[in-house]
Design a protein around this nucleic acid. Structure first.
Length: 893
RNA sequence: GGGCGGAUAGCUCAGUUGGGAGAGCACAGCCCUUACAAGGCUGGGGUCGCAGGUUCGAACCCUGUUCCGCCUACCA
């Protein structure tokens, strides 16, 4: 597009669409674009196939893309592996809901048909989130896209399972697990969400069998009393000393249960006597095991959350909550109910469907986790893995140190089938990569495979190496050699334990080395009130709507500028608007430069660079260093702010304004044009990782020969990232003097409301020869930026009546020939005097303090001394001028 | 119960080895100065939650405390 056609405003929808496909077609997302570079790799946290892009994904993808693009531009061989997660329970739930609409359930359909349905569903809707990631500009290598249920990943899963089993790190147990009666599956500890709820503590009298009275127990779950097999008291509890060993006639049943002693019983809580239901409570189960002989376990609640026949004919078939009411009512009728008091306690819920969890005894597979956790902790302790920000280390270690064995079997159909077979003849358990034809022990044919599938996180734990081809028969195993370990994992803290810790364990175990060097934990995005976004609260902001309204680049930049470490993000649409304006600024700066450089040939190496050009070049160097430094420390917001400030407040506010002067000057113009183009080209490259689309669009519009950063191909994506540039202290110092003079005049204008249209004369006094020489050289710039008709240097003694501004090393005076508002100016100067006097007093008191002068570093003392001098000079100047104005006021009566 | 994080301008937030506090937005004043009014210039505004301590010097380090949020935990 030529500059004459370039619209005045930036219109994202017109330009963002066309670049992504071009990048993709040219293979720029593949590591092969930098064949000789050092590898830099990231695996994406695979979003659920069921999902659609939310704010968390958007932030996550943006940060990864910034790193990927930055490293790619810096010459690294970058691989960003994308993919999705099969999300067992969540996906199965979705498809089951679809079936329900057809008045079907999965059992009617049968396992095979049901799985087919899920794959069908996945084919239809599973691509949505991928499309959305592309819309975000994610530079993933889509040719390497993976799915956690891929053939290759399945091979990895089976391999890991078999090896862990053979090493005794996977075992089967029938102990209590967390059971979701709605999903009808076991859950790991992590998949249970605890929430404080107002409940009831029910006190019940349990009569002794010998009719010698009763013992009162307290419970939050009265219905489980039908499965009680003991009442426990603390052996040290004087109140119940005589009760130990007695027998209780368990109400509503015809069973007798003993009173036992257990040191874990809290004497302070409730009545100090606790009913023991080993089949439905984790504590009670442990207590039952401690007894000799172990207590009996009676299951009164089934997998469906309904009472079993063992609960007694009356209650069998009742829902557990219905049974609770019935039990309490029946006890009341028997006169055994003492009271029900309000009681706040934490209740576990299924993280997928929020149903209250039921501890249930069913055979499940577990990973013996402690040995694996040890290795992961060691890796973090030895800094082979860095967690950033490191405040997460504490949480990580706290969790890892108390970690319990991981229940990995799930009673659902959608997932990796457990590679275990049972011989129906001899009961032999066969764990193998492939289905065995016969039982190795008894020779019976066709052992039956375990019905269950593995926890989704089991396959996710292998993601950093399974996606790269491990164990590698028919996949690109060379990726594994080249890109493992990955460079950094970018994720939010809510899956630190679910996923990150488990990847560490599996990576260390099976690859013999860490899966990633850095873990960058980014913020969670909340709404403007600081609430977690959730569909039920209705406060969800859809990233795609933001993109439609403001463009991907503005949206990405907002997320980046918000992404300070260690803090959650309160998202605000206003900020997105602000950053759209920023892009507009860039757009128009480019427009200006193109308008001024399109007149024939521009020699990019032309001219000797004047002070403003040397200055902006130096500032660009500083900005790019800041960006690079910040990115290397994952300080994304600092990086974004550095480039924002440079582009807007240094390049646009100062340099472009000064360039307008330089362009008028025949001698300077070629150099200024070259500098404008070079700086613009550089800042586009600096900005590209943050806002890929607009930078590509504008960069492509630059004249040939300017795009010097292009490494190969013709895209900013593969151009060099600005690096290793040097600042120019001398230029910055001199420019500082010029800017100081301009700011002085502007201050006077602003404060005295002098119209910008009014051209004024400026006097400069009290300047050293050096300062005069600098100001003299750039007099045209000062005139332009300060709106002056004339700049006059005068030795001393201002006879003109005017407004003054005391600068560092000189004074600016604007004579107003009679138009001056004496009172206004007097007020202005007195305000200034007050400020300066305050500062001066503080500094001089500091310097009079012997301790300060003696103990503070020399550098700090010197700085304070210089400050004192400057303030003193300004104060004197102010006093002098205030005196003159007062005389003037008196003369005028 | 344990742990972590936050409390800084009206709002949202920066503040990286402790050297008298910054940005964006909002606000006020003056300007359509031909890149941009989605803009320019100028300005007002904070006892850095509270109380102690360390230090020549504390938003920053230490102790205590209040409020808010989160994670974690088998007190029935």
């Amino acid at each position: 597009m030529s500059d004459t056609e370039k619209p005045k405003g930036y219109e994202p929808e017109k330009i963002e669409a066309r670049w992504y496909d071009a990048w993709l077609e040219n293979g720029y997302f593949k590591p092969e674009v930098n064949p000789g570079g050092k590898p830099f790799s990231i695996v994406i946290p695979p979003p659920n196939v069921t999902g659609s892009l939310h704010m968390g994904h958007a932030l996550n993808a943006t940060l990864q893309d910034i790193l990927a693009r930055w490293k790619r531009m810096s010459g690294y061989k970058v691989l960003w592996v994308p993919g999705t997660d099969h999300a067992g329970i969540a996906t199965q739930n979705v498809v089951e809901r679809e079936l329900a609409k057809e008045k079907l359930d999965r059992h009617q359909l049968g396992r095979e048909k049901f799985i087919e349905r899920v794959w069908q569903w996945r084919a239809e809707y599973g691509g949505r989130i991928i499309y959305q990631l592309k819309k975000m500009g994610a530079s993933c290598d889509w040719s390497r896209e993976r799915f956690t249920l891929d053939e290759g990943l399945n091979e990895a899963v089976r391999t890991v399972f078999v090896r862990l089993y053979e090493e005794g790190l996977i075992y089967r147990s029938g102990r209590l697990i967390n059971w979701c009666p709605r999903c009808r599956t076991a859950l790991s500890d992590l998949e249970v969400e605890h929430e404080e709820e107002q409940g009831l503590l029910t006190l019940i009298n349990y009569p002794f069998s010998d009719r010698s009275g009763h013992i009162t127990v307290a419970t939050t779950r009265p219905e489980t009393m039908l499965g009680d097999t003991a009442v426990a008291v603390n052996p040290a509890d004087e109140r119940y000393k005589d009760a130990i060993g007695k027998t209780i006639a368990l109400p509503l049943t015809c069973r007798a249960i003993p009173v036992i002693a257990d040191p874990e019983v809290d004497m302070e809580f409730g009545t100090g006597a606790v009913k023991v239901t080993p089949a439905h409570d984790f504590n009670d189960e442990a207590m039952a095991k401690r007894q000799t002989p172990p207590l009996e376990s009676i299951k009164v609640i089934g997998a469906d959350g309904k009472m079993t026949p063992e609960a007694g004919a009356k209650y069998a078939g009742m829902d557990r909550y219905e049974a609770r009411k019935a039990v309490v009512e029946d006890l009341r009728k028997l006169g055994l109910l003492v009271e029900e008091k309000k009681h706040v306690h934490a209740i576990g819920h299924c993280y997928r469907c929020k149903t209250v969890i039921e501890p249930l005894s069913t055979p499940q597979w577990y990973v013996k986790i402690a040995p694996l956790a040890q290795e992961a902790m060691k890796a973090v302790r030895e800094e082979r893995i860095r967690i950033i920000p490191d405040s997460w280390n504490a949480s990580f270690f706290a969790w890892m140190e108390n970690i319990k064995d991981w229940c990995i079997s799930r009673q659902i159909w959608w997932g990796h089938r457990i590679p275990v077979w049972y011989c129906e003849g001899c009961g032999k358990i066969i764990v193998a990569m492939e289905a065995p034809k016969t039982c190795p022990d008894c020779g019976l044919v066709d052992p039956v495979q375990d019905d269950d599938v593995l926890d989704t996180w089991f396959s996710s734990a292998l993601w950093p190496f399974s996606t790269l081809g491990w164990p590698g028969k028919n996949v690109k195993a060379e990726d594994l050699l080249e890109f493992y370990p990955t460079s950094v994992l970018v994720t939010a803290f809510d899956i630190l334990f679910f996923w990150v810790a488990r990847m560490m364990m599996m990576g260390l175990k099976f690859m013999g080395g860490v899966p990633f060097r850095d873990v960058y934990i980014h913020a969670l995005i909340r709404d403007e009130e600081g609430q977690k976004m959730s569909k039920s609260k209705g406060n969800v902001i859809d990233p795609l709507i933001m993109i439609d309204k403001y463009g991907t680049d503005a949206f990405r930049f907002t997320l980046t500028a918000f992404a300070a470490q260690g803090r959650d993000i309160r998202f605000s649409e206003e900020r997105v608007k602000g950053y759209r304006f920023f892009i507009n600024k860039l757009w128009n700066a480019t427009r200006f430069i193109q308008m001024n450089t399109s007149d024939g040939l521009v020699d990019i190496n032309a001219g000797s660079a004047g002070l403003p050009s040397r200055w902006i070049t130096s500032r660009f160097a500083a900005a790019s260093r800041q960006v690079e430094q910040s990115l290397s420390e994952y300080r994304f917001n600092d990086a974004a702010n550095a480039v924002y400030h440079f582009l807007w407040h240094e390049f646009c506010d100062w340099y472009i304004e000064m360039a307008k002067v330089g362009l008028q000057n025949e001698n300077e113009a070629p150099g200024v044009k070259a500098c404008l183009l070079k700086t613009l080209e550089g800042v586009l490259r600096l900005l590209h990782p943050f806002m890929p689309f607009v930078t590509e669009e504008l960069w492509q519009g630059l004249p040939n020969g300017v795009r010097q950063g292009a490494r190969h191909g013709e895209s900013i994506m593969t151009a060099c990232f600005p690096s290793g540039l040097h600042t120019d202290e001398q230029a910055e110092k001199e420019m500082g003097i010029v800017m100081d003079a301009v700011l002085g005049v502007r201050n006077i204008r602003g404060e005295l409301n002098i119209s910008p249209a009014a051209k004024i004369r400026i006097f400069i006094t009290g300047a050293s020869a050096g300062v005069v020489s600098v100001l003299q050289s750039y007099i045209d710039y000062i005139k332009k930026l300060a709106g002056a008709s004339e700049v006059i240097f005068q030795a001393e003694d201002l006879k003109d009546k005017g407004a003054v501004s005391l600068r560092t090393g000189f004074t600016v005076c604007v004579p107003l020939e009679g138009l001056i508002d004496v009172k206004g100016e007097l007020a202005r100067l007195e305000k200034e005097l007050k400020n300066i006097s305050g500062d001066l007093e503080f500094v001089s008191r500091k310097l009079m303090n012997e301790d300060f002068v003696g103990k503070a570093p020399q550098k700090v003392v010197e700085k304070e001394k210089a400050k004192l001098e400057d303030l003193q000079a300004k104060k004197n100047g102010l006093l002098e001028n205030i005196g003159r104005l007062k005389n003037l006021e008196a003369e005028n009566g």
